[in-house]
Design a protein around this nucleic acid. Structure first.
Length: 575
RNA sequence: GCACCCGUAGCUCAGCUGGAUAGAGUAGGUGGCUUCGAACCACUUGGUCGGGAGUUCGAAUCUCUCCGGGUGCGCCA
């Protein structure tokens, strides 16, 4: 149990004993300044306001009642009624010993479906896909770590009008005697060729449109071309995932087309229950709960007047599949904020139609639009997009150059391995460390930076610890010793280590990975400060201090590695 | 027109259900490697938290309003 929970229990009990209503919280937080102790409880002031009594007097009553023997060595009331808690150093040391036991982590066991990455297969993956892919993957790891059963769903876009154009292009290449896999080697170029043919050649455009219809009606020739195209594109995406160390593989691919044969049934079901109605030839769902101020309901078309289905239909079918077949307790969508209204509509309609039970959590975790350095929507100089494959190449090259410069003793194989972990880590951390919901600036320099609050800083802290254990000739994973909290640096580090579980809990419920990034950065900083002022292997250090400091180092390494792993970032023994 | 999101240091960003003197990174300045890895550490310069009003012991945080930016809104996905 975390220290915060510990204190929460004791203070809650004291508040009840002092006659304060049960729903008043202690409101515990880390103290703003060292002179205010380690933790502070701000609940007395809020409770006093409600009860109409003097806040300082109420704080005193709580302090009179609270039992923190062996936990806090000093309790003070300050200002209008802050309760400042100075923790016992012995207690901190004991708690650290307990945190070695993995069984202390509270487990959950929900069925959680996570929809993330979900790129369109018509084009190559570009930087616009990175947030969903990386953030979704982080949450999958975090939820799995705390015990949930995670079902990854890569809802790839493999269906729609643009595929008529693409298979017409592919047919053109094959007709010229070209090999399909070679023609599709550069998906981006291929798409642009198809687009140009479509725009400039009326015959091609007609053929493309006809192919869409033939594809939808199950024409074998078109399906074969389509499957060849899809297979190549999926393979490209899986390669990107592998290079990014993202836990998505072929088994998680559940593309739009898999719902094709359920769309008819979905529309029937929604019509029969009276939710979907005919309007101007189309099937439309009007949602009163999403109406504007004037009472105009929000409209969602699930079937066009020409009989065609839309992505709303597919999303409803996917929602039913996830809730019913996959038996989800919680369904998370990591999708661009621009689709916020669409997601609300799907959730609302899905619940009203009974596709998903009321006790299933539906959560759209949005993120902002990617902007250029000028604050406008991002484009490269020639108006294109930055491909993920290129970004990964660049990250690895930059990392390799830096390693060669900093550490000339490494051989080429070591450099390649470290460069991969370092470069990819920098790219992922740059994204994960920013609050998910806001628009974000795409900045090569910041993303590939190796200084300051970056993944390499955290990886560096880890390698420093590894280096100490190599020098001491001690097995880090086997080392075990009591922790003695002497200096302030040791205390800060210890308190930081003890917050890991509550941070994981917070990330699991709120789905904000940047909270974990901030925590790990603070942990690494605390370790760096500790490292500067607390010698470990020097001759003037007592055996007890040496063992204790090695213990703190081992715990720091374990926590850093675990936290980085949950972010999808790897560590290395040296760099 | 309607709806949602966002304005915090030169730049990129934190700031937990309202809490004490608004914090990091980066950029600028100073100092620290014959001693556990300087991709580091210790100091330092820099902000009327977009403007205004309200709620109260207390507001970057909650409410309203205005300004500025972004996004979305029945037959694309």
């Amino acid at each position: 149990m975390s220290i915060k929970n510990h204190l929460n229990q004791r203070l809650s009990a004291a508040m009840i004993a002092a006659g304060i209503p049960k729903d008043c919280q202690p409101i515990l937080a880390l103290s703003a300044r060292p002179k205010f102790g380690d933790y502070q409880a701000n609940g007395a002031m809020a409770a006093a306001k409600r009860l109409g009594v003097n806040p300082r007097a109420l704080a005193q009553q709580i302090v009179d009642q609270v039992d923190l023997d062996g936990i806090a060595e000093r309790i003070e009331i300050a200002g209008p009624g802050f309760i400042n808690l100075h923790l016992s150093r012995t207690f901190i040391g004991e708690q650290l010993g307990r945190s070695l036991d993995p069984e202390t982590c509270e487990r959950t066991a929900s069925n959680v479906v996570i929809d993330y990455s979900s790129p369109n297969l018509a084009k190559e993956m570009h930087v616009g896909h990175i947030r969903s892919t990386i953030i979704g993957d982080c949450l999958a790891r975090v939820l799995e770590y705390r015990g949930d059963h995670v079902i990854r769903q890569n809802h790839m876009g493999d269906w729609g009008t643009q595929f008529g154009m693409l298979i017409a292009e592919l047919e053109l290449h094959l007709g010229a005697g070209e090999r399909g896999d070679l023609a599709l080697n550069d998906l981006e170029k291929f798409y642009q060729q198809a687009k140009r043919h479509f725009d400039e050649d009326p015959d091609f455009a007609d053929r493309a449109r006809a192919y869409v219809v033939r594809l939808q009606s199950g024409d074998e020739h078109c399906l074969a071309l389509w499957q060849q195209f899809i297979a190549t594109s999926v393979a490209h995406n899986l390669e990107i995932y592998r290079r990014l160390n993202v836990g998505l593989s072929a088994e998680h691919v559940q593309p739009e087309s898999t719902y094709n044969n359920q769309l008819e049934a979905i529309v029937s079901k929604l019509t029969e229950c009276g939710l979907a109605v005919d309007d101007q030839g189309a099937k439309v769902i009007f949602l009163d709960d999403l109406a504007d101020k004037k009472g105009q309901p929000s409209a969602m078309i699930i079937r066009k007047s020409d009989g065609g289905f839309l992505y709303a239909t597919t999303d409803l079918a996917a929602l039913e599949y996830r809730a019913q077949t996959l038996a989800a307790d919680r369904i998370l969508y990591f999708i661009d904020a621009r689709q916020a209204l669409h997601m609300k509509q799907v959730f609302s309609a899905g619940r009203k139609a009974g596709l998903v039970a009321a006790d299933v959590d539906l959560e759209h975790h949005a993120f902002g639009t990617m902007m250029g350095r000028d604050g406008k929507p991002f484009k490269t100089r020639d108006g294109g997009t930055v491909k993920l494959a290129g970004l990964i190449d660049e990250a690895e090259e930059r990392a390799a150059r830096l390693i060669r410069e900093k550490n000339p003793n490494l051989d080429d194989r070591q450099i390649a391995d470290i460069a991969r972990k370092l470069g990819i880590g920098a790219v992922k951390y740059a994204d994960l460390s920013k609050t998910r919901t806001t628009d974000y600036i795409f900045d090569w320099e910041a993303m590939l930076s190796f200084e300051g609050n970056t993944a390499p800083y955290l990886q560096y802290a880890y390698t420093r610890i590894c280096s100490i254990f190599r020098r001491a000739d001690v097995d880090r994973t086997a080392h075990s010793a009591p922790v003695i909290i002497g200096t302030d640096a040791e205390k800060s580090l210890a308190l930081q280590l003890l917050q890991f579980d509550e941070i994981i809990e917070q990330v699991a419920t709120e789905c904000y990975p940047h909270v974990l990034c901030t925590y790990l950065y603070d942990l690494a900083s605390a370790y760096m400060s500790f490292y500067e002022c607390c010698p470990i292997l020097k001759s003037n250090v007592s055996p007890e201090d040496r063992a204790s400091r090695l213990q703190l180092s081992a715990l720091s390494a374990t926590t850093l590695a675990r936290g980085l792993d949950l972010l999808g970032i790897e560590v290395m023994q040296q760099m």
